[in-house]
């Protein structure tokens, strides 16, 4: 058995890393989409930095993605156990600090952000009670956040939706507040796939540096492997944060 290197393929590191940004991708026990999120970060031109849930060093990353999966099996409530990870303490502090670390929570990551109270509301089981995997049409409601500034306001995008506990719920006051403050980042277009209140697919915090959504932009970044084997609408999340970082650092 030999172990020769592939003959074809470019093994050099991409040299076009916009702003040389370092974006952390957190892995909890049971995280599934961490490699996908890292790939999306690289596709956008940044460096992906692995962050382990039990560590306390943020490694000077410029932004953080909390990817999807079933951390701790989602056994108690989705995100309920991960929220107490040492790394989450650091992320919550950094997100709330002066520096306003950009944080993106996708699916289980969104659930962890609501359990951590970085974002309001919570997720319960889909109204139809089943896991659902589909190509999902979304409307960008707020393009003023760290993670959505590359989209047009009102732009419709297709990315992947796949979850069991995707029904966004919050009390009426919170929902009114989110709408009044333009903090609904994405809504579902057409059929509401999980019964989310007011068809909300994703929201942001007040400052716009923390965004959480149920669908998966990191699965729509490469032609041939995304929605309908073609879509790349999710890549803009990851280029948006680089734009934000460049602007923010000036």
């Amino acid at each position: 058995m030999s172990t020769e290197l592939p003959l074809i393929g470019d093994y050099s590191t991409p040299t076009t890393q916009l702003s040389g940004a370092r974006i952390g991708v957190v892995t909890f026990p049971g995280t599934l989409d961490d490699r996908d999120a890292a790939r999306a970060v690289r596709a956008a031109g940044a460096e992906a930095v692995s962050l382990w849930h039990a560590d306390t060093d943020l490694q000077d990353v410029d932004a953080v993605v909390i990817p999807g999966g079933f951390s701790y099996g989602d056994y108690l409530r989705a995100g309920a156990i991960s929220r107490f990870a040492p790394m989450m303490d650091k992320i919550v502090d950094a997100a709330n600090s002066e520096a306003k670390l950009p944080v993106l929570g996708i699916c289980n990551g969104f659930q962890i952000l609501t359990e951590s109270h970085l974002l309001p509301g919570s997720m319960i089981k889909n109204d139809h009670l089943k896991f659902l995997c589909r190509d999902q049409l979304l409307r960008v409601e707020n393009n003023q956040t760290a993670w959505t500034n590359g989209y047009e306001a009102g732009q419709e995008i297709t990315i992947v939706l796949k979850n069991q506990d995707g029904q966004y719920v919050a009390d009426e006051k919170t929902l009114d507040m989110l709408e009044a403050e333009n903090r609904v980042a994405f809504s579902y277009v057409g059929w509401n796939p999980n019964g989310s209140r007011r068809s909300i697919a994703g929201i942001s915090n007040e400052a716009g540096n923390v965004v959480g959504l149920m669908p998966h932009p990191e699965h729509a970044i490469e032609a041939g492997f995304g929605p309908d084997h073609r879509g790349t609408d999710g890549l803009t999340f990851f280029t948006s944060v680089l734009t934000h970082l460049v602007g923010g650092k000036k």
């Binding site: 599934l32 996908d36 790939r39 089943k130 896991f131 796949k162 490469e222 995304g226």
Partner: peptide
Amino acid sequence: ITRQYDRYVGGNTAL
């Protein structure tokens, strides 16, 4: 049936 399964995770599913 198939929409109850994740076909995207891993980012390598071509068909």
